[in-house]
C-alpha cells in the first residue's frame, strides 16, 4: 500500500476515535453518585450532592496511602504515595468516561448508575 493510503487510514482512525470519545463524554451524563473501588471491590459509595462538610478518606495499598477529598459535588484524589501520582494530577472526577485511577494501589473512583425502579418496597 502507498504511504498516502496509510496517512488517510490513520487520519480517519483518529477522527473516529475522537468522535467515539466525544460520544462517551456527552452521553454518559454524570450522576451525583460515585463509587470508590479497590481491587475491583466497592469500598464506599458517596452521593456527592449530600456531602456538606469536606471529608478526607484514606485508603492504604501496597504502595502507601491514597487520600481522597470529598466535598459537596466534588471528589478528587488529594494525595498519593505512589510514584507517578497520575491520580492526583487527574484532578476532580468530571465524567463517566474518565474515572480516576490509581494503578499502583488498584483504586478506581467512578460515577455509578442510578438505582433502577423496584418490584416491591419494604418498610412502608
Amino acid at each position: 500500500m502507498k504511504t498516502r493510503t496509510w496517512i488517510i487510514i490513520f487520519s480517519l482512525a483518529c477522527v473516529l476515535c475522537v468522535c467515539v470519545w466525544l460520544y462517551f463524554s456527552a452521553f454518559l451524563s454524570p450522576s451525583e453518585t460515585v463509587g470508590i473501588y479497590q481491587d475491583g471491590v466497592l469500598v464506599k459509595q458517596i452521593d456527592l450532592s449530600s456531602v456538606t462538610q469536606p471529608e478526607e478518606i484514606t485508603l492504604s495499598g501496597e504502595y502507601g496511602d491514597n487520600v481522597i477529598l470529598v466535598s459537596h459535588g466534588h471528589i478528587k484524589m488529594q494525595s498519593a504515595d505512589c510514584p507517578d501520582k497520575l491520580c492526583v494530577k487527574h484532578g476532580e472526577l468530571k465524567s463517566s468516561a474518565s474515572p480516576i485511577v490509581c494503578l499502583p494501589n488498584k483504586i478506581v473512583i467512578k460515577f455509578e448508575d442510578n438505582a433502577p425502579s423496584a418490584d416491591a418496597m419494604t418498610g412502608r
Binding site: 462517551f24 473501588y37 481491587d39 475491583g40 463517566s96 468516561a97 474518565s98 474515572p99 485511577v101 494503578l103 488498584k106 478506581v108 467512578k110
Partner: peptide, 8 residues
C-alpha cells in the same frame, strides 16, 4: 483493577 470501564 477489575474495572472494564477503563476501556473508555
Amino acid at each position: 483493577t477489575q474495572t472494564p470501564q477503563l476501556m473508555y
